[in-house]
Design a protein around this nucleic acid. Sequence first.
DNA 1: TTGTCAAAGTAAGAACCTCTCACATATAAG
DNA 2: CTTATATGTGAGAGGTTCTTACTTTGACAA
Lengths: 203, 203
Amino acid sequence: MKKGAQTQKRDTYHHGDLRAQLIEATRQLVEEKGPDHFSVSEACRVAGVSTAAPYKHFKDKDEMLHAVAIQGMQRQQGQMIEELKPYQLGTLDRIIALGRVYTRFASQEPGVFRLMFGLSSDHDEVTELVETGTATFEIVQLEVAACRGSAEINEQDVHRSFQLWSFVHGLSFLAIDGKLNKAPMPFDMEFMLADVAQRVMAD
Amino acid sequence: MKKGAQTQKRDTYHHGDLRAQLIEATRQLVEEKGPDHFSVSEACRVAGVSTAAPYKHFKDKDEMLHAVAIQGMQRQQGQMIEELKPYQLGTLDRIIALGRVYTRFASQEPGVFRLMFGLSSDHDEVTELVETGTATFEIVQLEVAACRGSAEINEQDVHRSFQLWSFVHGLSFLAIDGKLNKAPMPFDMEFMLADVAQRVMAD
DNA sequence: TTGTCAAAGTAAGAACCTCTCACATATAAG
DNA sequence: CTTATATGTGAGAGGTTCTTACTTTGACAA
């Protein structure tokens, strides 16, 4: 008889890979209850360890959340690279694909997405988070330049990339906040992405 | 000798206007420490009452935060109406003005802005919040229609309004998250707003 | 003027929470 | 086999949210 997926039991004193399991438990709980309303002790219960255990692996609660945010950024970036594959370099479809991944990620993992951007915890100071974010934005900029037929990013490309990022970023938040379904007409995400991509990339 | 703006003293047993003062204390603290890291007891210390007092006026912590979010929405809406005044009806300048208020509000009150949108607390169920938000979006839609020279909002207007909203919403978040200053060139917010407004409103 | 009631405060405490400390146990390296 | 180190635990200090029973006070009817 299993005792609820809630709590893990273990026969060894040492855990094996507590750090990874705590991150996973944190991710789950953040998704379930939201980044606010997450508690370290609950993560401990899920992982089946004492409430003191996490502090061997993380400085504090915020660092646990940071770890989940970092993994989220990496997952998001991975999905982008994957999604680009079917499309030919230099096409608008690739820009649209990046936007699709962004909004889809937010919809599928709203808790983690909020963690990545919505919290006030000083993310500036988490270098790994900043670096992953910068790398992802680099991908966008390169795609925008490629649409011009260039491999070099110029000032206009940066500008357009920020416009695209702002748009999908806001769209994602509005989506997970449930603001889009209040519209009088059905909301067509794919059309919205394509329309904006075309407008921003137009001369 | 004043005893630090920290704690209010009072000679009467009854407070007078505790609800309002608690909301103000909450707003201050949310701004200072961020929506996460806000504590009811600290607000009580600021207001100079026992930690049980708030529960005569609010169901729980979340309801206090909701109250601040609602006031934020109302303040934002007020600023929009004010900012529109100098500009002639039906001009792009009015669209730009709305965007300017949105991003400016976020920059000036990032804590409250995050509270209004960034938290997972079920804002759907706070009718006053939803209603104010809807009313504000109505203003945007009317301006978009007016740009077409119409007083009626059609489907395309709704569509464009969502594009504009998404954009300024995302831009605001990126701004308060400090993502915009990483750019290689200086970031010109006003130009960005104007450029996007023009692109979205173009035929 | 006075009696009573409801509104709005308090003190105390239950049930959480984060994080620290001293201590226990297992693993890997010599 | 011994020992150092990494990784776990139990206990607890001090903070938090929220409830309960009690107190104070202002308002209003008699």
